[in-house]
Amino acid sequence: MNRRATQESPAARVALVTLTILLLLILLLLPLVVVFSEALMRGFGAMVDSLAETDSIAAIRLTMIVAAVTVPLNAVCGVAAAWCIGRFRFPGRGLLVTLIELPFSVSPVISGLVWVLLFGANGWLGPILNRAGMHIIFAVPGLILATTFVTFPFVARTLIPLMEHQGAAEEEAALTLGASGWQTFWRVTLPNIRWGLLYGVLLCNARAMGEFGAVAVVSGHIRGQTMTMPLQVEALFNDYDWVGAFTIAGLLSLLALATLAVKASLEWRIGQRSEALL
């Protein structure tokens, strides 16, 4: 036998690789190419003009605000969750992990729906809050809550396996040598998990900025006020403003590409792929 038994014949190999590359190009790359091609349909100038529209600028700003509130909150809580789950054994630990991952298996629309059930005009708390002048649904707080729900698991789910894999030996050594709990956390734990933390934050941020279904339910679609970038894409698309829709879609695609590039380099650094899928 002149070739290894674990390989296909050379002809089959070429065929399989070619087919794979073709599939990837058509299924996954083509939709991305279309975005940029449609955005540039009427030229570069038209694209820039559509970006300068006040509603588009408001959408970009709102997306940044939502991510700026959501991501740090989920990062801090993700680290806390990873600390108690990755460093301690306690009854109900498995259940806690399951509950943390729960938002991943909930439809985006349901992730928005639950907040309307609580804070909407017919919600449990909505009427009371509305009378007090507080509006959550069809306002920015609702967008933040829905986005926080959707991106809840990312950081914890990236850090838990990483911390379990690293073990507690270094932290125990630091404590034995007289370091306080906080010192140990800042000087030992955090440096050890920094790339994993960044990885989780990266995925969390990408999803926070790109989320559509959950925010569509709570937004109320008030132009210039409660429209994030993905919602603005929908509104412009439905107005038959294709250049405008695909221009913002192009910005979001650039974000996706940047996320994938940083993700690849972080995977190389931590030497493993996180189980956390976007």
Partner: peptide
């Protein structure tokens, strides 16, 4: 190619939808 496989996860769903 490996990065491309994650494209549908990274690309916001509304973008995938209109595209």
């Amino acid at each position: 190619a490996d990065s491309l496989i994650d494209m549908p996860l990274a690309l916001p769903t509304a973008v995938a939808g209109i595209s």
